[in-house]
């Protein structure tokens, strides 16, 4: 046992170093957001709430925050709905173009944001002649969130066997009863996880959104525009710290829902075996 631990030691040390590497820059943002100086310099000057207080007075910023919440909420809702419906079809049925749908739906995951954003800009502005709006940003965010939502729900649906649905129907449940009382409750954790992942994806998206932003803007785009003014950097950091805390909580929640998922799966598989 001790021998084993000794052998694992280099691995643990490396992992610890990587985690420090990953978290140190984030921690730095937090520390500097409380630093009593407009210049991003060491040594630190002292503790202040000043930058957070200044956030309260920034009207445009609240507008952008409100926009981001609306866009994230609506796009996450529809991405989860569309993704879940497609996931259900893919897991439960064989049909024509099934593989194409699967392949195509994974493309937004890896497509460079600039290409997607430029393509959408051409579609919206050049072909359709639309004014750029939050609605179009929402539609685009639905697209980039669909793959993750589909994958999360597919994993859940594939994990519990079709037998549960069949059993319900053998016992006399109608398809809709089965859907509402078996399938939906079982996939609920995955649906919530998908929603939360889509929400953070939309809330943090900058690279594609900036290309299709009109007069009204989302938070990351506004944040980036503030970087032109070095004196506002501490305010950006204060806001950034709040965003990081908020999204981290959402991500942890989503992951927890997904891992609660897999443990539930194991139990149900064992029960069916017996």
């Amino acid at each position: 046992m001790t021998n084993n631990r000794l052998r694992n030691l280099p691995g643990y040390v490396y992992l610890a170093l990587v985690l420090i590497f990953l978290y140190l820059p984030i921690a730095l943002l937090f520390v500097l957001s409380f630093n009593d100086s407009a210049v991003m310099a060491f040594p630190l000057r002292g503790f202040t709430w000043h930058w957070y207080q200044e956030l309260l007075g920034a009207g445009e910023l609240w507008q952008a925050t409100r926009n981001s919440f609306i866009v994230a909420f609506v796009s996450a809702f529809f991405a989860t709905l569309l993704g879940a419906m497609a996931a259900f079809a893919i897991v439960r049925y064989r049909f024509r173009w099934r593989d194409s749908l699967l392949a195509l739906s994974s493309i937004p995951l890896v497509m460079p944001s600039i290409v997607l954003g430029a393509g959408l800009l051409i579609l919206f502005r050049s072909l359709m002649g639309f004014e750029l709006s939050l609605g179009l940003i929402t539609a685009s965010h639905i697209l980039i969130s669909i793959p993750a939502c589909m994958l999360i729900v597919m994993a859940r649906l594939a994990g519990f066997s079709k037998n549960l649905e069949e059993a319900a129907m053998d016992l006399g449940a109608t398809p809709w009863q089965t859907l509402l009382r078996v399938t939906l409750p079982i996939s609920l954790p995955a649906l919530l996880a998908a929603f939360l992942v889509a929400f953070t994806t939309s809330f943090d998206e900058y690279a594609m959104t900036t290309l299709i932003t009109g007069t009204e803007t989302t938070l990351p785009v506004y944040l980036y525009s503030m970087l032109r003014f070095p004196r506002k950097l501490p305010i950006v950091l204060a806001l950034g710290s709040i965003i990081i805390v908020g999204t981290s909580v959402i991500i942890i929640l989503a992951e927890w829902l997904r891992s609660a998922d897999t443990t539930a799966n194991k139990n149900s598989a064992v029960e069916v075996d017996r």
């Binding site: 709905l81 569309l82 993704g83 419906m85 497609a86 259900f88 079809a89 893919i90 439960r92 049925y93 049909f95 749908l101 195509l104 739906s105 493309i107 937004p108 497509m111 290409v115 997607l116 393509g119 959408l120 051409i122 579609l123 050049s126 072909l127 539609a139 685009s140 639905i142 697209l143 669909i146 589909m150 079709k162 649905e165 319900a168 129907m169 398809p175 089965t178 859907l179 078996v182 399938t183």
Partner: peptide, 29 residues
């Protein structure tokens, strides 16, 4: 399954539309 096969089109339709309209069409343009 719980959802009858006749509804298959409405299950995958919206996702197809989204992928075609907001991904394939922009790439074609």
């Amino acid at each position: 399954s719980a959802i009858p096969r006749s509804l298959l089109g409405s299950l995958i339709g919206p996702t197809w539309i989204w992928l075609v309209l907001f991904m394939l069409l922009p790439m074609l343009l």
